[in-house]
Computed example of a mutant assay.
Amino acid sequence: MYGQVRGMKTDRLIRLIRIITLVQSKPGIMAKELAERCETTERTIYRDMEILSFANIPITNLGHGKGYQFVGNFALYPMDLTEEELMAFAVLPSLLEQVDLVPPDLYSAYEKVMAAARKEKLLRQELLDSVTNVIQMGTPAYKDVKTNFLSTIIQAILSQQTIEARYHTQSRNVTTVRAIDPYYLIPREHRFYLIGYCHQKKAIRTFRLSRFLEVNILDQTFEKDDFNLKAYLKDTWSIERGEKRIAFKVKFSPRVARYVKEEEMFVKPKLTDLEDGSLLFEVTLNHDREFLQWLMGYGAEAEILEPQSYRRKMKELLQRWLGVYDRDKV
Rank of each mutant, 00 (worst) to 15 (best):
Y232G: 04
G242R: 13
K202G: 07
A203G: 09
E223P: 05
A117H: 00
H168N: 01
V102H: 02
I239D: 09
L280G: 05
L13W: 03
E97Y: 12
A257N: 04
E275Q: 10
V113P: 11
R124T: 02
T272F: 13
R124N: 14
Y259P: 04
D219N: 08
V250M: 06
T147S: 07
Q170G: 02
S171N: 01
D100M: 06
D288N: 11
R118Y: 14
I204D: 10
M79Y: 09
D225F: 07
Y2Q: 11
L158S: 10
K112H: 08
M265V: 05
V283L: 00
K26M: 06
E264G: 05
R211Y: 07
L76D: 05
L123V: 15
E263D: 08
E282N: 09
N173W: 00
N56L: 15
T221G: 07
E306I: 13
V71L: 14
Y110M: 14
I163T: 13
K244V: 01
R166K: 15
A116L: 08
D328N: 09
Q308V: 15
E223F: 11
T284P: 01
R312Q: 09
V23G: 00
T236N: 07
P78G: 09
P78R: 11
R191I: 12
K201Q: 07
R211H: 11
L292N: 08
I153T: 06
L122F: 13
K244S: 14
L34F: 02
K244N: 14
I20N: 02
G72D: 05
L86R: 00
Y107R: 14
A115R: 08
G28N: 04
F266P: 04
D11Q: 06
H64D: 08
T169R: 00
E306T: 15
P254I: 09
V256Q: 03
P187Y: 01
H287G: 04
M296G: 13
Q98H: 05
V283H: 03
M296C: 13
L317P: 01
P187S: 10
E164W: 11
L52Q: 06
T284H: 01
K329T: 02
N73A: 06
R211S: 05
G297H: 11
K249A: 14
V99Y: 06
Q220V: 15
L96D: 00
I135P: 02
Y193T: 10
A31R: 09
D48V: 12
R245N: 11
M30D: 03
K202D: 01
K112R: 10
T152P: 03
F70D: 02
E263S: 08
Y110K: 08
I45Y: 10
L92K: 07
P27Y: 11
G242P: 11
I14A: 14
L76T: 03
F212M: 06
Q220I: 14
P182T: 10
F281S: 05
Y298Q: 11
D181H: 05
W294M: 10
G297Y: 09
L22F: 09
V113Y: 15
V283T: 06
S25K: 12
F227S: 00
D326K: 03
T152A: 03
L52A: 08
D181N: 09
S278W: 06
Q308W: 00
K66L: 05
V134A: 12
A179Y: 12
K315M: 13
I163K: 08
W294L: 12
P269W: 10
K244C: 12
E275G: 03
